[in-house]
Design a protein around this nucleic acid. Structure first.
Lengths: 217, 217
DNA sequence: GTCTATATCCTGATAGAC
DNA sequence: GTCTATCAGGATATAGAC
């Protein structure tokens, strides 16, 4: 199930039906693994109709990347804006990104896979997506950090590096879970395993580390 | 140029010649994009010979994943072991991983792409690779953290979470550079741009944030 | 707009001569 | 061990009837 869930029972155009199917397939299989036939099957139509609505696989793919990024940045924005105090901001960003990537782990992997195709597409699409938000979520994040520095609440840091550390920490588990599990087993740090509890632990660990890392105690 | 550089002028078997070519191709193109023909071309041989030495694409691929992980974990191990004091350990891990992924950014993307194929292969291969190190680099890292906690040098933390935050922070820039550049431009935090200086800045930022994050000041 | 049938291309893999 | 030639399958995309 994709995270772009329409209300069920709704009247949906065939176009968006196809796009939903394309998202499911591309996210699950990546660019190289995705098959037009599978997308048609998922959408309950046949292949030529796919090419009737969207000229090519590339077009469908680009549209998919766009929608995934629009969705993801939209969710983050929705949960982060209006948090004018730094710990609240930090905590809601972490909660949002960790929860979202945990329930849909293929999304960050999908975007990473797109990055490994070269990153030109993602760059221009990101620019479009941020351009449609006002203010863009990236500015909201930067301003939260700058404000906290002005208030003396946190140390002087370069926001871009802090943001990278934050995102990296939040994404890493969902993307690398099979490796983490192996490492955790290997060093005896993960026992029999309540995933839900682990995720809560994870969010707390990220918050504590990063907050202590910047706070003027 | 792959990071698995043989000394030039050496006598090399055709087998390793093929493997080098396969690594270059798989890292550049991923599983789906890699072509046996391209690998043959890179190795200066023809396709049937590829199947003569390695039965299938899958076999070649698996061997590639193995070598990449062996290389990467080996480099980290080499730079991290023997650092018995926590800040030194932390700094050399960060320096190693950031430098290594910056000069070979396709490597983490390649491994992520493999993770998005499902992660079964990577899990068993990781187990093999760590099993050949004694002690495994993961244990060295865990022990450094545990020792620092015992000494009271750092707060009580769950090593697995600290390690994830550390790795995530170190890898993120190299993997997501095109996105970072766009975001950096967008929020006016990256001007005209000395990459070398930025990388040094980045290493310092990670160290400072994480060290302050755990240190008992 | 929707389908069946098909074109065209390209892939991994092999047969078989040398 | 190394090559030429080729197979069988599967991919995107389209032609053309309805």
């Amino acid at each position: 199930m994709a995270p772009f869930d329409r209300g069920s029972g709704e009247e949906v155009s065939k176009e968006s039906l196809i796009l939903e199917a394309a998202m499911d397939e591309f996210i699950a299989e990546g660019w190289g693994g995705a098959r037009m036939q599978s997308i048609a099957d998922r959408a309950g139509i046949n292949k030529p109709l796919l090419h009737y609505y969207f000229r090519s696989k590339e077009k469908l793919y680009r549209e998919t990347v766009y929608r995934v990024m629009e969705y993801f940045f939209g969710v983050v924005m929705g949960n982060v804006q209006g948090k004018d105090n730094f710990p609240d901001f930090l905590r809601s960003f972490i909660d949002t990104v960790v929860d979202e990537t945990t329930s849909h782990p293929r999304i960050p992997l999908f975007l990473m896979q797109e990055l490994s195709r070269g990153g030109e597409a993602i760059r221009s699409i990101l620019s479009d997506v941020l351009g449609k938000q006002n203010p863009p979520v990236t500015e909201v994040m930067r301003d939260n950090i700058l404000r906290a520095m002005e208030r003396g609440e946190i140390r002087q840091v370069n926001p871009i590096h802090f943001i990278m550390n934050l995102i990296g920490s939040c994404l890493y588990y969902a993307m690398a879970e099979p490796m983490i599990m192996e490492i955790g087993k290997q060093i005896g740090m993960i026992g029999l395993f309540d995933k839900k509890a682990f995720i809560e632990e994870r969010k707390e660990a990220i918050f504590t580390l990063l907050y202590h890392g910047v706070a003027n105690e």
